[in-house]
Nucleic acid binder design. Sequence first.
RNA 1: GACCCGUUCGUCUAUCGGUUAGGACUCCAGAUUUUCAUUCUGGCAAGAAGGGUUCGACUCCCUUACGGGUCGCCA
Length: 437
Amino acid sequence: MTVRTRFAPSPTGYLHVGGARTALFNWLFARRMGGVFILRVEDTDEARNTDEARQAIFDGLGWLGMDWDEGPGKGGPCGPYFQSERKAIYDAWFEKLRAADRVYQDGGAWRFRFDRKPVTMNDLVCGEVTIDYRDESNTPDMVVRRSDGSYVFHFVNVVDDLEMGITHVIRGEDHLMNTPKHLQLIEAFGGTAPQYAHIPLILNQDGSKMSKRDEGAAVGDYPRQGFLPEAVVNFIALLGWSSKTDEEIFTTAELADRFSLEAVNRAPARFDIEKCRWVNQQHLARLDAAGFAAKAEEFVRGAGLPVGGDWPAAVALVRDRVRLLGEVPGEVGFLLTDRYADDPEAVAKVAGNPAATGLLENLASTLPGLPAIADAEAAKAVLKQIADAAGVKPGALMFPLRVALSGRAHGPDLGGMMVLLGNARCAERINRLVAKL
RNA sequence: GACCCGUUCGUCUAUCGGUUAGGACUCCAGAUUUUCAUUCUGGCAAGAAGGGUUCGACUCCCUUACGGGUCGCCA
């Protein structure tokens, strides 16, 4: 029997990291088992559904690289995959319940009559859990159909899992107490229950429940900041799952190769955006030069910077200085354009050092007459020559020069900067700074 | 409140009765670097508490505490 899993979000907000991780575990499990991953949109709450939310789900899953085998835009033998289009199916299943006298009307709504007995589930993550339905006060008969004729979550969720042949339901722990209800419905239908795996929730750094407003909560925010989808997938996989080895950086394919429900933890995990950034840096570091440049280019252009001929060299010079691609424009800007802002603090520091001006002037007047600086070694030689002439160490010239060339106190290798900028441009920038001193 | 699930460094985690309790993020120190970043080396830091069971418990059992979840004509 082939494994069939599903992600069944309701389009009522943005795609949340918690939801993304639920989707990921379903996707990973299906891929690992050579099964089928289904996307089903649970849009039964007309009042709260929005088109933006629906689109956010598609965009988010697409960006993260989770492709679905059946679902919206893809079709499949169990469609339609929007619950809002499955009314006839639900009506038919509801009739079964009525014929079996398992529902009764209450205030216009229909309630499902629970079997008053202990219900035991065997959860793949939580183990054996029993809820006693003899205690009616704790387990009142549930509404399955509203007075307006529409069906509630429990009903449609169970019907669709049955209709779609779902073999494994992997969902958040907030559904654990719903499972015996679903088991009772399945029994009433005479169906075969899927296996359940309830995964722990994701909490904020402070242990509170993660909500949509918290930092890092919205999957849609990640692309803009320059996270790589594989890095985000890697990081959220590590929230509640472990490879049981010391390795933690995995490609999505590697995760799909190693994933198992047995290795899923039972305790909720806190979300640490710092570590997420570190994971992103690790994935960035694994990109080859061309790959990194291509991804960075998008952000650099987005920041309104020109991507010129020296772009590959410029990006190579700064690539290991960033954890997010969104940081690249700020790092390379001065290499791509002459129009960048000087850091007033850095300039003030240079101005406070009287010896710096003379050094810079000497360098600026020497540079144009020199052959083009070919590499960092050559650059150092030039600086040493100027410094020696003034009887100081090269270090005395380096900070002022860095500020002159980049407008900032910190940056990439100074020699590399000089090579990229060229003698003439270096001289211009030095003169420009000297004029400000 | 009732009913469930959980509890190892600040955080993510390894350990499936016998370990100096390991790794990673963060932080600190050192090396490299003109600077910052990167990289490398080293360091700080944990079994919630109390009872059992056992030759031996982080690991099994019980109690308490704490955390989370669920108790809708939301999903």
